[in-house]
Amino acid sequence: MALSADDLHRAAKLARLNVAPQSQQAQLDALNAVMEMVSAMQSVDTSDVEPMAHPLFQSQVLREDVAVEPNQRDKYQASAPNTDAGYYLVPKVIE
């Protein structure tokens, strides 16, 4: 099942990536080569196999409910592209 240009644009939009018109075909070709390799798995009968999400067959360890994180805002915001008065700033979102 090959990806169409629409499929590529749809996935790129969901992933917030731009697809440059001049690279679209190359991207599609590469993706389709990968998907063709992947499609080998479609023929395998897995009807009686449970999906495996994780190689660890354990359950979640739970944390005690204590609020011990100190405020380190300045340190955490040191790498931020645009902050003011403790806020992260982004282009205005119109709702």
Binding site: N82, D84, A85, G86, Y87, Y88, L89, V90, P91, K92, V93, I94, E95
Partner: peptide, 13 residues
């Protein structure tokens, strides 16, 4: 998201 603090930005807390 606070939209009314800045004219050009939304502020994220």
């Amino acid at each position: 998201s606070v939209h009314d603090l800045y004219s050009e930005f939304s502020a994220i807390d």
